[in-house]
Design a protein around this nucleic acid. Structure first.
Lengths: 231, 231
DNA sequence: CCCTATATATAAGT
DNA sequence: ACTTATATATAGGG
């Protein structure tokens, strides 16, 4: 993708032809006789799909692959006119989101669906964490939820229910759920400029990401969204 | 990935060594002199990232790329121990989800975050639908929301709020939000067997997917979840 | 972040 | 669905 990667076949507009900063030492030295391995790197290595133990490597991979995932989502969205939202919790529960998650959650809840089957019939050999049918948590259907897990599932559902309630209360909607009224909860005097300022403040207020980037923040940080924060 | 793709380098267990059903005609015939283009296909073509107009091609692409996206998500999840949820609305609003979306939405709402910056700084040339700063809808931050769009944004927020409320009511939690009580709303007499049966019924009840697959269904279809459906 | 070499994803076509 | 040929994603290493 990029711009003009100068592929020998389908390069449409060579444009500025990236200077290729460091052309790497040499793919084949001009006179070293029979260089066993003139390659400077081993290239992409095949890895097993199982939890990466080495913390550093795991974080790098998380960062790279999260980017890749989001890029794929963006492409899919554009190519097919689909709306896509992704919520990602890193192991230490940091959140990374793609898309208008709030809006999509809204839409999702409106549809009130029960996802009994998630898409993706994984064909790879991720061995850890599978149930007796070889399924990972994300592919488990209701049919395969076992007795003990059922409780957890139900707790999850009731938890969702409770939390939605809590959230509603936080949003101040527990007294009157009328839309029009709620709309007025947002003072129209909110100019883009103000938002920008707020955003900058927030950017500073962000705590560190695992990999050192990513923006995420709490309601509390926004003066005028603080009405939505937990008491 | 797959199982034993027989890569010359890192093949660990060759296993059954896929028969390679149709080895294709020949990449280079053994005696045809100078075959100009012995290739049977043009291979993967480069495409522009813009909405695919041809309906059929768009649906095929949607299907393939959705699978790919979900697979990537699964891998990321396993590799990095992250929880990932994806909600996808196709153009005709069909929903495809990856992961325990309900649980993740719960978690997301619990955290009560405001995503002012979505991840992914797209570096590709998707030209359609960009704002004056060249951003797509999914990368718009609050600062860049213009006057008219602000209204929509607020409507979105208040809409979310209203819908959450509605949802709470539907869930029957508008009288007593106590968790323990809610938990009891789920009769424990629900055996896995019953779920399986229900699931099978539902599978039949599914309406057609755009591409002919994918499973999705309404609360109404599940006798005992019907308490959650809209009145 | 940058780079390379290689593993994967996937556009077309059957 | 399945194949092939090629575009992309990325593991490992500065």
């Amino acid at each position: 993708m990029e711009d003009g990667e100068a592929t020998p076949t389908t390069c449409l507009f060579p444009k500025e032809q990236k200077p290729t900063r460091k052309p790497n030492l040499a793919v084949k030295q001009q006179k070293g006789r029979r260089v066993p391995n003139p390659k400077t790197t081993k290239g992409r290595q095949k890895i097993e799909i199982k939890e990466i133990q080495e913390e550093n490597r795991r974080q790098v991979t998380f960062s790279k692959r999260r980017s890749g995932l989001f890029k794929k989502a963006a492409e899919l969205s554009v190519l097919c006119g689909a709306q896509i939202g992704i919520i990602t919790f890193s192991r230490c529960d940091r959140v990374y989101a793609f898309g208008n998650v709030d809006t999509l959650i809204d839409k999702y809840l409106r549809k009130a669906p029960v996802t009994l089957r998630s898409q993706y019939g994984g064909d790879d050999e991720a061995t850890g964490g599978r149930d007796e049918n070889g399924r990972m948590w994300w592919e488990r259907e209701v049919e395969s939820v076992r007795e003990e897990e059922m409780e957890e599932y139900m707790k999850g559902l009731s938890g969702l229910r409770e939390n939605l309630w809590t959230r509603i209360c936080e949003l101040g909607g527990d007294n009157d759920p009328t839309v029009q009224e709620n709309a007025q909860a947002f003072p129209n005097l909110m100019a883009p400029v103000d938002w920008k300022m707020i955003d900058e403040n927030l950017t500073i207020k962000n705590d560190q990401d695992e990999a050192g980037n990513g923006g995420y923040m709490d309601f509390e940080a926004i003066p005028f969204l603080s009405q939505f924060s937990k008491p």
